[in-house]
Amino acid sequence: LEGMTFQLKYLGVTMVEQPKGEELSAAAVKRIVATAKASGKKLQKVSLTVSPRGIILYDSASNQLIENISIYRISYCTADKMHDKVFAYIVQSQHNETLECHAFLCSKRKMAQAVTLTVAQAFKVAFEFWQAAK
């Protein structure tokens, strides 16, 4: 409930057409990984806190807030099959209706799975709260 924090590396973002889907997210992750590799830049270290309220991202080096994403804007999360150390989620942009897929590199495959399962747990708890509040 109070949140779980993970140390990850931010790979990047790409637009997607739909809020969910295995093939859609796999294609998005593929694009993000290719772009990150092509840029050759060092990846930004981030701390990602998951709770039933949503996801909060901080820059690990500066402790600056990057984004606070409400659970209601997140549509989907996944541990990628092809890139098994990659965790990704799809979120509706705060500024317009566009959907973005954000991807993060984990140190281990198990960690990508743990982040994904933690976000899934947050979805479940948020849904229980929402139902109770109705």
Binding site: S25, S75, Y76, A79, D80, A133
Partner: peptide, 18 residues
């Protein structure tokens, strides 16, 4: 292992109205 772990959010786009 060919399984993808993925989850849909059941509260996506639900309003936060009380």
């Amino acid at each position: 292992n060919t399984n993808t772990i993925h989850f849909d959010n059941p509260v996506y786009q639900k309003t936060t109205e009380d």
